[in-house]
Simulated assay, not measured.
Amino acid sequence: MKKPLLLTAIVALTLASVHAAPLHEAGLAQAQPEDANVDSRELVRLSQWIREQKLDVYSLLVVKDGKLIFERYGAGASRDSNYELYSVTKSVTSMVAGMLIGQGKVSLDDSVATLASWRPDLRADFADKRNVELKHVLSMSSGLHYDFKPKDDPIYYTAPDRLKLAAKTNPKAAPGSQFEYTDINPILAAAMLSAAAHEPVERYAQANLFGPLGMKHAVWERADRSGLVSAGWGLRLRAVDMAKIGMLVLDHGRWQGRQVVPQQWITQMTSPGVAPYFGYYWWINNIVQREPEFDAMGFKGQFITVLPERKTVIVMTSVMSVDGGLRDAKNLQTFRQMVNDYVIPALDNAQHARPSKERRDALQHELAVSAHTSGVPGTQVDPTDLPKL
């Protein structure tokens, strides 16, 4: 009898904290799913399925019509936790690039070779890269080759100067001729944007994006010894702040009436480029194929998915299996299943979205249970993967 009583007490305490938690500090309005014409029963089923499958999901959020209608956290995570976003960092970088372009500080046609004036010691290494431009770096079509095969590749871990490694790469294809997803590109992007901003890219992002949008605990880590971060990984944001990135896409770069990212850039970065499924560091119809959809995705299962026609943003942070290819990893397949089999049916079920105390209680009970449930990591958990405050 003690265990059920203990669980009941835990659920009651968590319910109280869920109801009491103010959302004004996050800059997002909050609503019950049914108030937004969304069927909460499907979302409850999704949360139960995550627990049954023992998936290591730290956070899962749904924003509809600008309101946070579903906010689920697993054990050890909370609204104030930030998470290693891995390659979702690239998508945020793209927004920063658009801001600098809009300010006239850099151009898509600027050559990587201009970095020679920023790093004169690498002038000779950049000499063969005059035709590689910012647009090629942002669209993963620079044509530069780097050997990623060595174990514990220094470009991710121990390189004291990542830009030097990137500068020494050799062209293997004409810039703009083919898509190849390589993490050499975001290193070059970080350097080009830092040079254009006349300050580290993470400092510019804090002053012009993270700060204005009220992003608490935003931090860009894992700089090399020269002080350069990668534009491809290392950014840590809260899930609610990841949702704001998606909302910027939904609202054409505006936040609470203010144009933060140029509207033209939002269109450009989410339009197909060299690859039909990739724009400027944003994926296109990678999660949902039967309607317009844009997404940011990161290693081990980090996602921001934007459904423009439904005015919906879906966010997830997790540690799930990385088995499979770039566009078909197991964590990607699992997230597709979540969105297509549960979230979209919840959105489609407007005629059955009837508010009731029973549904509210069922949802809050499930969220409370989930908050005390740990999943099983689908791959190795590194210290950087853990939620932090």
Rank of each mutant, 00 (worst) to 15 (best):
L28K: 04
A29Q: 15
A31D: 10
Q32C: 06
P33W: 12
P33Q: 05
D35Y: 01
D35I: 00
D35C: 03
N37D: 09
V38P: 01
D39W: 03
S40H: 03
R41Y: 08
E42T: 00
L43S: 05
L43N: 06
L43F: 06
R45M: 12
L46E: 07
S47T: 12
S47Y: 04
Q48S: 14
Q48G: 01
Q48H: 14
I50L: 12
I50V: 15
I50N: 02
R51C: 03
E52P: 01
E52C: 06
K54Y: 06
L55Y: 14
L55E: 13
V57E: 06
V57F: 09
S59V: 01
S59C: 05
L60V: 06
L61C: 05
V62P: 07
K64A: 06
D65T: 05
G66S: 12
G66E: 14
K67D: 10
K67Q: 15
L68H: 01
I69Q: 04
I69A: 02
F70W: 12
F70D: 01
F70T: 02
R72V: 03
G74P: 09
G74E: 06
A75H: 13
A77D: 01
A77K: 05
A77L: 07
S78M: 08
S81M: 01
Y83R: 03
Y83P: 00
E84G: 00
Y86W: 15
Y86S: 10
S87T: 04
S87Y: 05
S87M: 10
V88C: 15
V88L: 12
V88Q: 03
T89L: 08
T89R: 00
K90G: 04
S91H: 06
V92F: 09
T93Q: 10
T93V: 02
S94G: 08
S94Q: 04
M95E: 11
M95K: 02
V96A: 12
A97E: 06
A97T: 14
L100I: 12
I101W: 11
G102T: 12
Q103V: 01
S107A: 15
S107G: 07
